[in-house]
Amino acid sequence: MKDIIKLFFTFFKIGAFTIGGGYAMVPVIQKEVVDNAKLITEDEFLDYIAVAQSIPGIIAVNVSTFIGYKLYGFIGAFFICFAVVLPSFVIIVLLANVIMLYRNSIYLIKIFSGVRPAVIGIMMFSVYKLFKPLKKTKFSFFIIILNIVFIIGLNIHPIISLIVSGIIGGVYGHIYVK
């Protein structure tokens, strides 16, 4: 129980302080759960991201719920999901009106001029961290490039691209992996 409470506060902190949305939260979750607390491995984390992204819903919530389930079963899933959603809820309900009042203030605009490129940097860091545990085979690089061409070149929806990649992986693995 003590461990769940500790993890609850970790995810609460992530939800409360990470500006930039779900893709910015992924590397923060990885840093806390994989690097600092060492509760799961890098390779497991990449698995969970892959699965969480294949499920509809908010990616950061899905990953958090998945990690909660893996560590402490349904109770863990419930508490960790709650922990990651709660800060958003509290901040919006308590501060929405105040923030909207100052939304055109020169300071807020300047702050977000700094935050926006920072979020891109954090997402690049995410690519770096997820790439590290990946097996660097020709097949992996083929799938990465395929997704980039599909989404940017052919304007295909990411989820279609993801499903196609899963099917190609399934067939490839069936033929080539013992």
Binding site: L46, A50, M123, F139, I148, S161, S165, G173
Partner: peptide, 21 residues
């Protein structure tokens, strides 16, 4: 086998999000 496709796909997808952003 499915993960063999999904894992690199996620990395590709995040790269496209970085690019668009």
């Amino acid at each position: 086998s499915i993960l063999l496709g999904l894992k690199p796909a996620i990395i590709g997808i995040i790269i496209t999000v970085v690019y668009k952003l």
